[in-house]
Simulated assay, not measured.
Amino acid sequence: MNRNERATGPGDRLLKMRGKLDRGPVEFKSHIVQQEGEVMAIATRDVVSVPPTQSIISAVAAMTECGFRRLPVTDAGTKKIRGIVTSGDVINLMGGGDKYKLVRVRHHGNLLAAVNESVRTIMTPRPETLQKDARVIDALSLIVGKKIGGLPIVDADGVLLGIITERDVLRMLAAEHSPLAVEDVMTSSLRVIAPDSPIGTATKDMTKYRFRRLPVVSDDVLFGIVTATDIMRYLGSREVFGRLTTGNIAEVMNLPVRTLMAGSLVTTTPGTPVNEAAREMLERNIGALPVIENARLVGLVTEFDLVRAFSEE
């Protein structure tokens, strides 16, 4: 989570808890756990991919239906990897960053026209990959070192064979006992957003600061979390098009983030062991837990935080 303390408004501000939990960045040793064995042993082999010519909306629909945050882009015939599209690319397109030009400039704000472009227009080309004989330590080095949430696995010819994500690694590492508690690894400086802030504000912040989720807070009360996946799902389920009258993306991006909030909120506490937090995330298939103390939000612990912590133990 980015700790850059720029000037913020009421709907886009930094929540920084002082005192015992204000530890700043956690310092980890450079050693990565020496986990031997092929990465394919814990990877997903039955990988869904799309060709570069697939429309953006159909690719996003596939990600939404399957519950994925990323989708490899491969040649239709050879299955050689050409790129990857992630939930981050989607929120970038919807108003977060440079890919928004596809909507604003080429299609003059028409969202429906823009998402019928091919997925190659927003994918990340030449993504980081792993060879099929790579070790888990190699995956850890890239996931932790470059903050990459998922890595396609390829053979010597670049043909897609599988994918490994930080969740796959966490599932393996969570079996190892750690003496750490949530407060030792959580982020305590959080950029938060108000329930009535526009969705467009969320996409801009997520893209600019390169994180996947924003706690939704009003008067220091946590209402929920809005994630890049929530925003992507809004597009992929095509619910967004039911709210369009003119077709202009501004109609959607000006809606409040509370529009995206649904379901129950799962939280944890600072003293919870990291193994317990990891089990909770894996069982509930969620990527982060807000950390609550004395009925107040004091931090956020994510899958990445736990993978990094376990790998340094």
Rank of each mutant, 00 (worst) to 15 (best):
E5R: 12
T8F: 09
G9Q: 10
P10H: 11
R13L: 05
L15H: 08
L21F: 02
L21M: 06
E27G: 05
F28E: 09
E38D: 12
V39L: 13
R45M: 04
D46K: 15
V47R: 12
T53L: 10
A59S: 14
M63P: 05
C66D: 12
R69G: 14
P72D: 03
T78W: 05
S87A: 04
N92W: 05
K99Q: 12
V105Y: 10
H107Y: 11
H108Y: 13
N110D: 15
L112W: 07
A113V: 06
I122G: 14
M123A: 13
M123D: 09
T124R: 02
R135N: 11
L140D: 08
S141F: 07
L142Q: 12
L151G: 04
I153L: 10
D157A: 06
I163M: 14
I164W: 03
L170V: 08
L170Q: 02
R171Y: 07
L173I: 11
E176S: 11
H177Q: 10
S178N: 00
S178G: 04
P179C: 02
L180A: 08
L180E: 11
V185R: 01
V185W: 01
M186N: 02
I199C: 01
A202F: 00
T203P: 00
K204D: 06
F211I: 02
P215H: 01
V216D: 01
S218C: 09
F223P: 03
G224T: 02
I225F: 09
T227H: 06
D230P: 03
R233V: 11
R233H: 13
L235H: 06
S237P: 12
S237H: 10
S237Y: 04
E239F: 13
G247C: 05
L260D: 07
A262E: 15
T267S: 08
T268A: 05
T269C: 03
P273H: 00
A277L: 05
R284A: 01
G287N: 07
L289N: 09
I292M: 14
R296S: 15
V298E: 05
D305Y: 00
S311A: 15
E313C: 09
